[in-house]
Design a protein around this nucleic acid. Structure first.
Length: 423
RNA sequence: GGAGGAAUGGCAGAGUGGUCGAUUGCGGCAGUCUUGAAAACUGUUGAGGGUAACACCUCCGGGGGUUCGAAUCCCUCUUCCUCCGCCA
């Protein structure tokens, strides 16, 4: 949610920036400003009424104590009248505030200056490429074939016990999965991120805090009996740890990392591109989250990008980095870099990480603040990224590391797997 | 799941109908003293709205109610503690 203050101060600049998303926000912005004005007018009138009522109450107390019952009685009637007025104003205020809130929820974050206008992922900008795309042996297989051949992942078993998109990892496949989680967590903690284990179900307030609610409710699995949601990413519980918190400046930056399974309904996706590990309803991910002072947040974003690069370099996977265009940018993000690993056998790029700066957009909903140099509470900036998402990394390793005899294990993972090849 | 008790400012902990946004202690910040520090002493120290700045309004776990007036009384929900039951 955009801070109202920002909208008041530079609505037109915001509208121009939002054009890059292909959205004409002017009607929404002017509606927000109108509702804000209305809300403030009502608030002022309500405050005045309440101030008068408070004054009367004190007077009545004094009159009673000095035995002037009759005068008090007259004031009580006046007070009752004020109460009626206050109630009416209160209702109107509630309506205006709610309408304002709903309007603000519809406004996405402002794209950063470096974000290019664009319609879709086709307009994303490749800003970095690394690694060589390996020449695969004769008869190279896509990862779902390899997974079957070496009995690493059983997709059918997952269908049996749960449904499509819930694979069962077996033997060396399961071990490789666990190795990746441990390796990623070790990389992240070595870079100063504090490791956390967090709940995998969250309440409604947390869903609103990070912006999954109200608009993306259909993408989350729900437990209505208890009013809970299965997390679509560890970002939700981790970032919400700091909901309604005012941090001291000395506590910044906050750097967290957490492994979690992620649950996504992926309503509406289908087709050839969802085969194997490409798109799942449950997958594993190691997330990194940072909270920064506004002036540091873009330096922090670059640091996160460098960190993720380091992990992919160590795994020796061919990858590229995209700067998302306005049309592909997430609702809550101001600037996002996507990392994609090349799937040799499928001959396509697979997204394995998305690193974003949300500036104050999430913090505004979360009421996540810090005390600035003047000791005044200010909204902090939040950032997060995957470091990394497991399934497509696994797919990339299986496909890129296959040779005539089987699959090699990336060197850095061998201490974690305990074996150096499959097959 | 059953029975009791509790929820107040960063923390501890007063406050049972009116002048209480809230005594006090600790912690934090500033000052006095000191070569410096500590100790001692003095002052200051919640959040949001609102204002040019004041004024003013709201908030004592959440929601609702009684009353001219609620931290204080009533209802309800949530959470925590104690006891019992069940259990990885």
């Amino acid at each position: 949610m955009l801070p109202l203050q920002t909208i008041r101060e530079r609505a037109e600049a915001l509208a121009i920036a939002l054009d890059k998303r292909g959205l004409d926000a002017r009607p929404l912005l002017s509606r927000a400003l109108g509702l804000d004005q209305e809300r403030r007018n009502l608030q002022t009138r309500l405050d005045q009424t309440l101030a008068e009522a408070n004054r009367l109450s004190k007077e009545i107390g004094v009159l009673f104590k000095s035995g002037k019952g009759e005068e008090a009685q007259a004031l009580r009637e006046e007070s009752a009248r004020l109460k009626e007025v206050a109630k009416e104003l209160q209702d109107q205020l509630g309506t205006a505030a709610e309408a304002l809130q709903e309007t603000l929820y519809l406004l996405p974050n402002i794209p950063h200056a470096s974000v290019r206008p664009g319609q879709s992922e086709a307009d994303n900008e490749v800003v970095f490429e690394s690694g060589e795309i390996p020449k695969l042996p004769e008869g190279a297989q896509p990862h779902w074939e390899l997974a079957k051949q070496y009995d690493l992942i059983d997709f059918e078993l997952g269908v049996k016990i749960t449904g499509a998109g819930f694979p069962v990892y077996k033997g060396k496949g399961a071990r490789l999965q666990r190795a990746l989680i441990s390796y990623f967590l070790d990389c992240n903690t070595a870079a100063g991120y504090q490791e956390l284990q967090v709940p995998h179900l969250v309440n409604e307030a947390s869903g609103y805090g990070t912006g999954q609610l109200p608009d993306k409710e259909g993408q989350m699995y729900q437990v209505p009996e208890d009013g809970l949601y299965l997390i679509p990413t560890a970002e939700v519980p981790v970032t919400n740890l700091l909901r309604d918190v005012i941090l001291d400046r000395s506590e910044l930056p906050v750097k967290y990392t957490a492994y979690s399974p992620c649950f996504r309904r992926e309503a509406g996706s289908y087709g050839a591109h969802v085969r194997g590990l490409n798109r799942l309803h449950q997958f594993d991910k190691v997330e990194i989250v940072r909270v920064e002072e506004p002036e540091n947040s873009y330096a922090a974003l670059e640091a996160m990008v460098e960190h993720v690069k380091g992990i992919l370099d160590a795994l020796r996977l061919p990858y590229r980095i995209l700067r998302l265009c306005g049309g592909d940018l997430g609702f809550t993000s101001a600037l996002t870099y996507d990392f994609e690993v090349y799937s040799t056998a499928q001959e396509r790029w697979l997204e394995v990480s998305s690193v974003s700066n949300f500036e104050a957009f999430q913090a505004n909903r979360l009421k996540l603040r810090y005390r600035d140099a003047g000791n005044k509470p200010q909204l902090a900036h939040t950032l997060n990224g995957s470091a990394l998402a497991l399934p497509r990394i696994l797919a990339g390793i299986l496909e890129n590391y296959q040779d005539a005899e089987g699959i090699r294990i990336p060197e850095v993972l061998v201490p974690y797997t305990g074996f150096d090849r499959i097959g």
